[in-house]
């Protein structure tokens, strides 16, 4: 464990908590892509099956359980409890265009052709594109509440910090997980445009982040 990875995990947890609390307290999921949240729940489900097969550390186990609980709770809030505020019109990204290529690639490019390993690979590839429905929804509505922007900021920072973690681990222990690194770079690149908007608009205190 190193500071980059720990702060990455903390950012990830903060992002997930920000989103959950935003929906819970405002009793509305307006502006939130339910599709992205379903994809994230799928990412955690396919990645954390090793909860039942291998024990790494208390931290690892606790964080996986917390991520799974919050992810499914958020999906539950969006599609059940506050479903009347779910803007399915704007959340129109065709997720099959993500799922099919990601599933295909995870069968072609993986470390081992075993069920757990292919599911892990699927989750890595899927995570790199899971935010696209949310980013697409924001470009479609043309704006995002600043709380949603903060959520995206922490979510983008988390994987960027993981890139630093992989640099550090490569430098200190020769660790190199090519699938995770390449996907992490792609994932972070998708946030670059948002980061620019965030630091030029949201931080100007304009309340909402309105896209050009």
């Amino acid at each position: 464990m190193n500071i980059f990875r720990l702060s990455g995990d903390v950012c990830h947890l903060i992002a997930i908590i920000i989103l959950f609390l935003k929906i819970w307290r405002s009793k509305s999921c307006a502006g939130i892509s339910g599709k992205s949240q379903v994809l994230f729940a799928l990412v955690f489900t396919t990645r954390y099956l090793d909860l039942f097969t291998s024990y790494i550390s208390a931290y690892n186990t606790v964080m996986k359980v917390v991520y799974l609980l919050l992810a499914y709770s958020t999906v539950g809030l969006i599609f059940f409890r506050f479903r009347n505020s779910y803007d399915s019109e704007s959340d129109s990204f065709r997720v099959e265009f993500l799922l099919v290529p990601v599933a295909g690639l995870s069968f072609l490019e993986n470390y081992a052709f075993t069920p757990l390993e292919i599911l892990w690979t699927f989750s890595i590839y899927l995570e790199s594109v899971a935010i696209l429905p949310q980013l697409f929804m924001i470009t479609k509505t043309g704006e995002a509440e600043s709380i949603t922007a903060h959520y995206l900021l922490f979510l983008g920072l988390y994987r960027a910090l993981y890139l630093a973690n992989w640099l550090w681990r490569f430098h200190t222990e020769g660790f190199y997980d090519q699938i995770a690194v390449v996907s992490g770079v792609v994932q972070t690149i998708f946030y670059c445009d948002f980061f620019y908007l965030y630091f030029t608009r949201v931080l100007r205190g304009s309340g909402k982040m309105s896209l050009p």
Partner: peptide, 10 residues
């Protein structure tokens, strides 16, 4: 040598 299969990262 790091065993790539036991993914120890979240």
């Amino acid at each position: 040598e790091y065993n790539i299969y036991n993914h120890d990262e979240l």
